[in-house]
């Protein structure tokens, strides 16, 4: 099941399954097998994370005490936090609790890991969904326009603009937006998120505006180029040529044939972006003081807070598995030759 993660492999399996159709023998649907593989991946991830934290210099006690870390205070705190136990014992007791739904307590401040993690995850979800919801249609529109008017002034304008934004570091985009909309030119939007920790970003939409905009500007260039390249491939294909020769209107060719067929890489690209948005937008989170998952993971690592690192990283890894699976399911729906597979 180790190769189950590759979308390509699973598609091949799917096709085989479709051809053979052995009705009596029970074979779990390919996506169930993928989920099983994902679970194994998570176990491996948790072990890897544990090993990695053992290799990192310092531990939670050292991190809490900072420059006050005298040997006496260290050993007292280590005993209090259970860090004086053998590594294997620490991992097994954590894993045992985790499987029964007890995510443990943060070593840094004793708060319940679930209580720390869930609001942050909710905020990140809000931000990622907003960003994708805007970036995806905008990118498909601009990418299609670009491909349809290939090498024309509009195409060149879109390509140059998206390359420019692609080249700008995210924090420059973020700080630029702050200067324009919060502190300098117009003072209309909040510069940072200040909503109380017990509320979520969903109920504070104003706090989402600038981070969303920054993310849209940061990820759209990638999506636009993906749409454009994939659409250009499709437009150059033989079936489009055939359609043109049959006199199908250009607009209909675009919407009914080319665009639909060029969606596969876009869907996979969007899935990757979602996974990236969940964990990789620390810079944007910092610029806007947005309480999300990326910053949480970073703080957890720098405070060597193992239960929090594990829970956050596993959540991100699980998201990765699920999002990729969802993308594959969607691709199967959209691609007729992959359809009709129930196994």
């Amino acid at each position: 099941m180790t190769n189950a993660d590759s979308a390509l492999t699973s598609r091949v399996e799917v096709r085989d399954g479709g051809v053979r159709r052995s009705p009596r023998r029970f074979v779990a649907p390919w996506w169930v097998r993928r989920l099983g593989g994902g679970f194994c991946t998570l176990i491996a991830v948790s072990i890897l994370i544990f090993l990695a934290t053992q290799v990192l210099p310092g531990d939670a006690a050292k991190s809490i005490l900072g420059r006050d870390a005298t040997p006496e205070r260290l050993s007292a705190l280590r005993a209090q936090l259970g860090l004086d136990r053998p590594a294997i014992e620490q991992y097994l007791s954590w894993a045992g609790n985790f499987l029964t739904g007890d995510f443990g307590q943060s070593l840094a401040n004793g708060r319940n890991v679930g209580e720390v993690l869930i609001p942050r995850a909710t905020n990140t979800l809000a931000l990622a969904l907003c960003a994708i919801a805007i970036a995806l249609p905008v990118s498909i529109l601009l990418g299609s326009l670009s491909a349809a008017r290939r090498d024309g002034p509009l195409d060149q304008g879109i390509v140059v603009t998206s390359l420019t934004f692609n080249a700008l570091p995210e924090f420059v985009i973020g700080l630029g937006l702050v200067v324009i909309f919060s502190t300098g030119l117009f003072k209309v939007l909040p510069a940072v998120s200040l909503f109380p920790p017990d509320e979520s970003a969903f109920s504070n939409p104003m706090a989402l505006v600038l981070p969303t905009l920054a993310l849209v500007l940061a990820i759209s260039p990638y999506l636009i180029r993906l749409v454009r390249a994939s659409l250009i491939d499709a437009l150059d294909s033989e079936y489009v040529l055939t359609a043109r020769l049959r006199g199908v209107p250009e607009r209909r060719i675009m919407t009914h044939h080319a665009l639909r067929n060029s969606m596969t890489p876009v869907i996979h690209g969007t899935a990757l972006l979602l996974a990236y948005l969940a964990g990789g937008i620390v810079v944007i989170e910092y610029v806007f003081r947005f309480p999300g998952l990326g910053g949480l993971l970073l703080e957890a690592v720098s405070s060597r807070d193992l239960p929090l690192i594990q829970a956050t990283a596993l959540l991100l890894a699980a998201l990765y598995v699920v999002v990729n699976l969802a993308a594959d399911l969607l691709v199967v729906r959209l691609t007729p030759r992959l359809r009709g597979v129930g196994a």
Binding site: L175, V178, S182, T183, K187, P190, A191, V192, L194, Y286, V287, F288, R289
Partner: peptide, 8 residues
């Protein structure tokens, strides 16, 4: 962000 929050 701290200084931006003050200016905003």
């Amino acid at each position: 962000p701290r200084i931006n929050a003050l200016l905003a």
